[in-house]
Design a protein around this nucleic acid. Structure first.
Lengths: 339, 339
DNA sequence: GCGGAGGCTTTGATCGTTCCAATCTTTGAA
DNA sequence: TTCAAAGATTGGAACGATCAAAGCCTCCGC
């Protein structure tokens, strides 16, 4: 196979110099129209493509974003992350950015991996997901001045004492509020909530939305809880429905996740009520398949927001973080998918 | 922030030359022990990391594998691919390789994207997934001499006339054969099959395993079919079970996918048989959650096989394809997960 | 003591692109 | 016609690593 063409070759064919070719590629507006067209013709004729490594070496930019691929958890909601990664890849591609994935089992291992990627200049920015209380990653990234955005808000801890970092998250409370209001308007006043055990940031946030909507409406309803997992959720609700009147006095159920919703749905069916109205969270394929309503997180919107924060709304490169500007954040409002 | 150290800096600190440092990194065995240790000490002191772009430019190797991220299909079985991507990332990382993801909506768009990545020397090899009849990607890759492996066997078409490419796939027939034998041994002789409509390569392959196992045992059972999708599978089986004796004369059901299995399970429960033995395929979280047995594809094994084919069993770099050697392939045997 | 061989180390060149500073061309006005 | 200013183009240098070939030791054996 012939050696691939370089800028030099293009320049020779077009009868101009290297720099002119470079200008056509990087700042087309400063080149005279007639010249630019000739160069572009030569590029097309030769099927020239810039050598990414050479460009990276010179510009010290890799045009690549790193993202951690969470270990397969076995849970249903991994789908959200997959959709997010997918959307991020598409949007990034539109802006001339690549997405590099890496894996790590623990936060410390992730930091080591990031060290390689950042110091080796393989990535310009990072998107971290699944932030948790006392997460060491954010501090490390801030300290090293690596541009990053987290999908998931910072939870307490370090972030109280230093300006929080830039993040994007889904507005869980707004989601359950919407879901609860819809149930109040269509099903009755006795709307229950089926959540995770307390002291789970995301779970508490979603529960708050239900509580607020109920208070606003002067209504009340029971609260149930179960750790994640469809089978577990089903058992918990089966046990609850075995108590007298629990099921019959429930107009509808707002759930913290789709597995909770599916579990409750199945438990209700087992208990003889085939169509207890439930609303899940995450709009996973299972909910879709079973015809269960759910709050759609729109990972696509999250991905777009993440890129806007990293690159600006129109930028083609990662913007350096302004140390004085307060970190920004975006809350994406989920929307109700009725089935 | 200080400028990151280069080989030159390391060499100066260690009192040796650039090349010696490079040797310590790339061929440690040719450097005298005492010298090597001194250099490694200097590397540690300076926290030196090789600049990836510079290395790529010189060696003309990117140590990166590209993989297409399929659009979110809404189906349950996207999980397999996600687990595969994850496993590939881990294994690749162990061998010093990176994984770059790209997206495209159509095969032609994918080829265009691959053109960018390959000509820009951003990737050394490609893993393609979801091969289909008349897939234009394989021909393009072969023609351009890009090392690649497909997850999924080649289906007819071009590949009859030219040596098939290298691929890894799951042995569907072996899986359903195992499942069917297990059912024959434990449930009875009347084992049904619930598949996709014919002329779907994967589906036909899986059906063959059931048929063979049944013939071997001198048994027979009904065949049902439905296009993919849990809701649809459930409807189809509900209709089938409405016929007299269909459900009662069925000992067990081997299914082409987990959504089929879940659909059949729910339909049987609707029809009054809560525990019809079914075995799905893919071992998705839903099957796990509902306590339904399934054939586990082990995407981890597939990922390992893919890397072996690309890099050799011990290699640290993508091995150039030998045009004369016949393309290899690996069939991974799925294993039964009983619940 | 000398020559040679083997093995580690050194130096210069190179990969393909963009930055920099200087030069050349064009345009418009005096 | 000439000059100045603005704009476009040019060639040299640099990014940081590895390759290739030459150089320098050290250690043997004669």
């Amino acid at each position: 196979m012939a050696k691939p063409p370089t800028v030099e070759d293009v320049a020779r064919i077009a009868g101009v110099s290297r720099q002119t070719v470079s200008n056509v590629l990087n700042s087309p507006h400063i080149v005279r129209d007639e010249t630019r067209e000739r160069v572009q013709q030569a590029i097309a004729d030769l099927a020239y493509r810039p050598h990414a490594a050479a460009r990276r070496l010179r510009t010290r930019r890799s045009s690549t974003i790193g993202i951690h691929l969470d270990p397969y958890s076995g849970g249903i909601s991994g789908v959200i992350l997959d959709r997010f990664v997918h959307a991020l890849t598409e949007r990034a591609s539109e802006r001339g950015m690549r997405v590099l994935i890496y894996s790590a089992r623990t936060a410390d291992e992730e930091i080591a991996r990031l060290g390689d990627l950042v110091d080796g200049a393989e990535i310009d920015a990072v998107v971290i997901t699944g932030t948790f209380f006392g997460d060491p990653r954010t501090g490390w990234l801030l300290e090293r001045d690596v541009p990053f955005v987290s999908f998931g808000r910072p939870w307490g801890g370090d972030d109280v004492y230093r300006p929080a970092h830039t993040w994007v998250d889904v507005d869980g409370a707004a989601g359950t509020r919407t879901a609860t209001r819809h149930m109040l308007a269509t099903q009755g006043a006795r709307i229950g909530f089926f959540g995770w055990p307390p002291d789970n940031g995301t779970g508490d946030d979603r529960e708050r939305g239900w509580r607020e909507a109920m208070t606003d409406a002067g209504a009340s309803g029971p609260r149930f809880e179960a750790v994640d997992g469809l089978a577990n959720a089903r058992e918990v609700m089966s046990a609850a429905f075995a108590e007298p009147d629990v099921l019959s006095e429930l107009d509808a159920l707002v759930c913290v996740s789709d597995s909770h919703a599916v579990g409750a749905h199945l438990a209700a069916a087992d208990a003889g009520r085939r169509h207890l109205p439930v609303i899940g969270f995450d709009n996973t394929p299972v909910a879709e398949a079973l015809g269960i309503s759910s709050m759609e997180q729109s990972p696509e919107l999250v991905a777009a927001a993440v890129l806007n924060l990293l690159m600006g709304t129109t930028g083609q490169a990662v913007a350096p973080r302004d140390r004085d500007a307060p970190p920004e954040h975006v809350l994406v409002e989920p929307r109700l998918i009725l089935r």
